[in-house]
């Protein structure tokens, strides 16, 4: 890890902080453009609130203040780790989200790893046997994965593996009401995650397989691959030792670009498999017009996405020492 790389990562961190600030202010303003505040909604739903009670509530939650003052309160709160209060759930937003975050992160991280690993492997095998039957078969399977929507994959997998074969659970994060040792719990959660992870990652397996195949073919035509063969290395060694790392670079970049999209896909997956994740929390929050919660979810998700992107930048600098000059 040299000075240039550290400076580069520092610069990226600074950029991220700016982005987070913009996200906070931006989403706050956006939600305030929507007509009606929290109290209107509560009032509308209850139907029995009088103007006096509403005024009291507004004063209590600071909703009678000018927007900039509210923004200021919100930002100072966020800086102190206070994301506001969810009236609907009668809990503070942060603990609600933190409760749900692990399931989502587990789902997303596992899906990314599975997609990158299987996708790259398929792409590399296809490139290694380019235009031969294996390549054609992989391309066809990949096309099917690519064209099937997440919810169909999810439902299809449930019907086959849960309903018909009864191999895997239909939904949930773990089997409730059973005493389990830590190890058993891990195994149980893993079993519950197989189908959600598969249905979320299939599409991305397809994307990374196509990307890895193309980038592998491009890398294999490079001069340094010829040099590696000229040394006396065998094909497998050349591919794993010399080509793979170079071929992975576009895949890693793509992961960074798609991580936000993946969180979007997680909402759907969590709904299909009734996983207690942030996605479902956000989904419910939108329906109940729980503004502080929506805002909180937005913030935390952007934070996580930015964090993941920083990690990906870091991984990239490990993979490609030229980053310091090329970016």
């Amino acid at each position: 890890m040299n000075r240039h790389v550290l400076r580069y990562l520092g610069w990226r961190l600074l950029q991220s902080l700016v982005v987070i600030a913009i996200v906070i202010v931006g989403s706050f303003m956006l939600l305030h453009l929507v007509p009606g505040d929290m109290v209107d909604i509560l009032g509308g739903q209850r139907g029995d609130m009088d103007a006096e009670l509403m005024a009291i509530l507004r004063a209590r939650y600071g909703l009678d203040q000018p927007m900039l003052v509210q923004l200021f309160h919100y930002v100072t709160g966020v800086l102190q780790g206070d994301l506001g209060y969810s009236y609907r759930n009668q809990t503070d937003v942060l603990s609600l989200i933190l409760q749900r975050l692990p399931a989502t992160i587990l789902l997303v991280v596992c899906s990314v790893i599975v997609a990158v690993f299987l996708g790259t492997m398929a792409g590399v095998i296809a490139a290694r046997h380019v235009h031969r039957p294996i390549d054609v078969i992989i391309s066809m399977v990949v096309l099917v994965f690519y064209a099937t929507p997440v919810f169909m994959t999810g439902l299809g997998l449930v019907i086959v593996f849960s309903v018909k074969l009864k191999l895997l659970p239909v939904g949930g994060l773990f089997t409730p009401g059973v005493d389990m040792t830590t190890l058993q719990l891990v195994a149980n959660v893993a079993k519950h995650m197989v189908l959600p992870v598969l249905s979320l990652s299939l599409f991305y397996i397809a994307i990374y397989a196509r990307l890895a195949r193309a980038s592998m073919l491009q890398v294999l035509s490079q001069d340094y691959i010829r040099t590696a063969y000229a040394k006396g290395l065998g094909t497998t060694h050349v591919i794993i030792g010399h080509a793979l790392r170079n071929a992975l670079l576009p895949v890693v970049t793509m992961v960074g670009l798609q991580i936000a999209e993946l969180f979007g896909g997680a909402v759907l997956t969590e709904t299909i498999f009734s996983l207690p994740g942030v996605g479902r929390l956000a989904y419910d929050a939108v329906f109940e017009r729980d503004y502080p919660l929506i805002l909180g979810v937005l913030l935390v998700c952007s934070f996580v996405i930015i964090l993941v992107n920083l990690i990906i930048d870091f991984v990239y600098t490990l993979l490609d020492p030229r980053v310091e000059v090329s970016r």
Partner: peptide, 16 residues
């Protein structure tokens, strides 16, 4: 038998 190529930059693996 060993070979030396024309363009040393492209002939060396950039990530190793």
């Amino acid at each position: 038998m060993a070979m030396i190529f024309q363009d040393p930059l492209s002939s060396l693996n950039p990530v190793l």
